Simulated assay, not measured.
Amino acid sequence: MVEMPCADHDAHAAATQFLTHTVGRMLALLNLRATPIDTKGYETLLRLVENTCSDSFDLYNGLFMYNKNSTELLHRLESAMDAVKRRLFDELHEVLRKQLFEGSPPLNRQSPDSSSTTESPLPTDHDPDTHDEKSGQ
């Protein structure tokens, strides 16, 4: 037992219990399963899912409903996920920019093995479906 003011307890509980249960329940929605190449970290995630989802949803909901810190923690968790995604996509875009603009060959707009069946928006010198009076064809 640790003696502390209620406000401190609630702040710590949101950061430990509610966060743990939220992440565990989010991971449960991914239907994660053991694989032949599990890492220790992945095994820990599987145990987290098992531990948090074996508790009732009512317990989890109580951690949310009766602790005003939980709402703020959900917003922070969402912001953190957005920041991670932004960084991943920024890195991807940087790699693509380098490939496009720093010496790499340009990307083809049409793959070499596909044949285009769409009409060209630009006029051509010779349309095979019309009769060319100069050549007699």
Rank of each mutant, 00 (worst) to 15 (best):
L30Y: 07
S111K: 13
G41W: 06
M65F: 01
L32M: 12
T39C: 00
E3N: 05
E133K: 15
L29S: 14
A34L: 01
T20A: 01
P121K: 15
S135I: 10
N67T: 05
T117A: 08
N69E: 12
L29W: 11
D113V: 10
K68G: 08
K68C: 11
T16N: 04
K40H: 09
H93Y: 02
E50Y: 04
K85M: 10
E94S: 11
P128L: 12
S135H: 08
T22D: 02
R109Q: 08
L77F: 03
H21C: 04
V84Q: 05
D125P: 01
D132F: 14
G103V: 10
R97K: 05
A15N: 03
T20N: 01
G62I: 06
K40R: 10
K68H: 12
L73H: 00
Q137F: 09
L27M: 06
I37K: 15
N51H: 13
S116V: 12
T52E: 08
Q110K: 10
D55Q: 14
E3W: 11
A34F: 01
E102K: 10
L32H: 01
C53S: 05
L96M: 11
H131Y: 09
L74V: 03
E119G: 11
H9E: 15
L48N: 01
D10L: 14
T35P: 03
L63K: 09
Q99H: 09
F18V: 06
H12V: 09
E3C: 14
E50H: 06
G62A: 10
A11L: 14
D10N: 12
R76V: 02
E91A: 09
H93P: 00
R76A: 07
L30T: 03
S56D: 05
Y42L: 07
E72S: 14
L100D: 00
R47C: 06
D55L: 15
L27Y: 02
V2M: 01
E102I: 10
M65D: 00
H131K: 07
L88P: 00
P121N: 13
V23I: 13
D129Q: 13
A7K: 06
A34I: 02
T22K: 02
K85W: 04
C53M: 13
R86L: 10
D8K: 09
L77W: 02
V95E: 08
K68S: 12
L46N: 00
T124F: 04
L29I: 03
Y66W: 05
N51R: 15
L19Y: 08
D10G: 05
T130R: 15
R109A: 11
P105W: 13
G136A: 08
M81R: 03
R76L: 07
D90M: 09
V84K: 05
N31T: 13
R76G: 02
A83Y: 00
H93G: 00
E72R: 15
N31V: 14
T16W: 05
L46T: 02
S70K: 02
D113T: 12
D10M: 13
D132K: 12
D82G: 09
L74E: 00
D8T: 13
N51C: 12
E72F: 14
P128N: 08
E72Q: 14
E50C: 08
T71H: 03
E119D: 14
D129Y: 12
Y66H: 09
L73I: 02
V84H: 02
C6N: 06
Y66F: 11
R87A: 07
S120Q: 06
L27C: 03
L46K: 02
E72V: 11
Y42P: 02
S111T: 11
A80G: 08
